[in-house]
Design a protein around this nucleic acid. Structure first.
Lengths: 219, 219
DNA sequence: TCAAAAGTGTTTTGCCTACACCCATGA
DNA sequence: TCATGGGTGTAGGCAAAACACTTTTGA
């Protein structure tokens, strides 16, 4: 144990999330050194006294995903005394949503996408952090806080994709006709006129979110 | 400007809130020394490396209100570089709900209750913090996140009181009959059998929240 | 022609809304 | 008896829920 002090180490962890085939995935980084060598961790950096949290989130996201995020969400701050074996490190967690296909391979780090319900072995308390943060994120998606749904579907999408993601997040099935009816009748989505022919079967029309979405939620 | 360092000063601010006659009020402390002498501030303490945020919130609440809080809510962390003139201080803000009549006068500090929409002159960026935190708190009350409504009405209350608070928070008027009907038909409240005869007019029946409240919201 | 996924309409149900009069009490 | 706030019921509209068949495409 060190001496009592009013100076604190603070790390900023960035949960880089995406929607992939209706699943919620996060981008993790493999730890190259001890402790927890070979385990996966949430990307992050230590905060200096000359940076805000937001600066660090931007840097981390660029470093790991090659993307400068336009928007970020502060999730929670963990201050447990035993988070790290040596000295207490405060962790401030942020979430950033990215389009998976804009993220290129990273040369400096070994990174990987993981389904939120199929996480690998993770270092420190990071698995607990991911689970807690995702629990609150779920609610935010369900109630569309800060228009967060749009971050996962910023451009066009099929109603099937959206429904699949929605059912995954809300853990409930919904009738396809009712789902579509609601979105369309409430004016949350608009047709783009394009079609998606990538899948087998009848091509699906593409939709995008309208500004009206921010006043409502799919719940 | 000091030198770049990875050590940070962190303060934990505790918004002690209550419901009074349908209004949301917070307990502030008058600053006795420069800077901002005579201005009001959110109570708080500097975090040491041997404490968690929760410990500090507990201590601050006891120090200011004489109460050990059972529950607290982490609201937001501010890391702007210019929050304080001398050096950057990170502020982590928590909310605690108390019953106003359990808070006794404080001998060590000058404290006062203020309506959230009638705040006094406040020091630092505390007024901005209060406003931002309250904005998110409002949503939490409206959607009853973490069963927060119950924290403001932990024991029995009249439906009139509750409606007044609700209309204040939601900034919308609601028909008395419909309000009562919803609460009762959804099973969110139950009669205690007691009556409140403190006011003039017909005595009002007292109700308390049921466990069912946590599954729903008044919205 | 078959498999796979997309698209569509109607009926029922329950909740939210609007709305006005009587009741119990203390002054 | 009056002023003050508390308590109650009904009808209409609208959105959610339940429910099954047809269409388009590529293989």
């Amino acid at each position: 144990m060190g001496k009592k002090s009013y100076y604190n180490i603070v790390e900023v962890l960035t949960l880089i999330g995406c929607q992939d085939n209706g699943h919620f995935q996060i981008l993790l980084k493999k730890k190259k050194t001890e402790p927890y060598k070979g385990n996966w961790i949430i990307p992050g950096n230590i905060l200096s006294n000359e940076e805000t949290f937001e600066t660090v989130v931007r840097n981390t996201t660029y470093e790991i995903a090659g993307i400068i995020p336009k928007k970020m969400l502060q999730n929670y701050v963990f201050s447990d005394l035993n988070r790290d074996a040596s000295e207490r490190i405060i962790a401030s967690v942020y979430t950033v949503s990215v389009l998976k296909n804009l993220v290129h391979e990273n040369k400096d780090y070994e990174t990987g996408w993981f389904d939120i319900d199929n996480l690998p072995i993770m270092g420190y308390d990071h698995k607990k952090i991911v689970k807690e943060v995702f629990a609150s994120l779920r609610k935010q998606i369900i109630y569309n806080t800060d228009n967060i749904l749009k971050d996962f579907f910023p451009y066009d999408f099929t109603l099937g994709e959206l429904q699949k993601f929605w059912e995954y997040i809300a853990s409930e099935e919904i009738d396809r006709r009712n789902f579509r009816k609601k979105l369309i009748s409430q004016g949350f989505v608009a047709q783009t006129g394009e079609e998606d022919k990538r899948k087998v079967g009848r091509p699906s029309k593409l939709y995008c979110f309208t500004d009206k979405l921010q006043e409502g939620s799919l719940k």
